[in-house]
């Protein structure tokens, strides 16, 4: 089947089997390998992309379903050569280690900040609860999201600087 969609602001097309998962289309056909596959059961969120602005697990959508849609992947976070505040904050706050969950985590967080410019720690932890991280224990991810928030909320108290 032929599909046409916008990915990170660019028109992209493909001629694919209906069974091709969106994540495989994005990674394989478009070569955008920043989105990852971490599980088979829609559990981990490593494959998260924004579909018409809302974070979804691209391993649980067929690419044909995205026909005519607007997709944003981690590769589309930068604007005019500038890092998105969430990207800068993830580095600054050490919100990543192995980097595998990071793209999905940042996209989910970016959408949260679009909806809610000053999320509380609970808001952040709730919004990110469909994205699993094995490395960071989430503490610094929460800090990064708070740091990137347009209207900053109270920072997380986490003891003394190590």
């Amino acid at each position: 089947m032929e599909i046409a969609l916008r990915v990170n602001g660019q028109e992209r097309t493909g001629d694919i089997e209906p069974r091709r998962l969106l994540i495989h289309f994005i990674r394989g056909d478009l070569g955008l390998t920043g989105s990852h596959v971490g599980c088979d059961t829609t559990s981990c969120g490593a494959c998260t992309v924004l579909l018409d602005g809302s974070p979804v697990k691209s391993c649980t959508l067929f690419a044909v379903q995205a026909n005519g849609s607007e997709i944003k992947t981690v590769e589309g976070l930068m604007q005019d050569g500038e890092l998105d505040p969430i990207q800068a904050a993830f580095k600054e706050e050490h919100g990543l280690q192995c980097g595998f969950c990071t793209p999905g985590m940042m996209l989910t967080a970016a959408e949260l900040l679009d909806r809610n410019p000053s999320p509380s720690e609970d808001d952040i932890r709730w919004a990110l609860s469909g994205n699993i991280c094995r490395c960071t224990g989430y503490v610094n991810i929460v800090k990064a999201v708070q740091a990137a928030a347009p209207a900053k909320s109270e920072p997380v108290a986490t003891g003394s600087e190590a």
Binding site: G34, L83, F90, G99, P103
Partner: peptide, 9 residues
């Protein structure tokens, strides 16, 4: 981190 936050790992 510079590559990871850009999805370039």
């Amino acid at each position: 981190d510079d590559r990871f936050i850009r999805g370039k790992g």
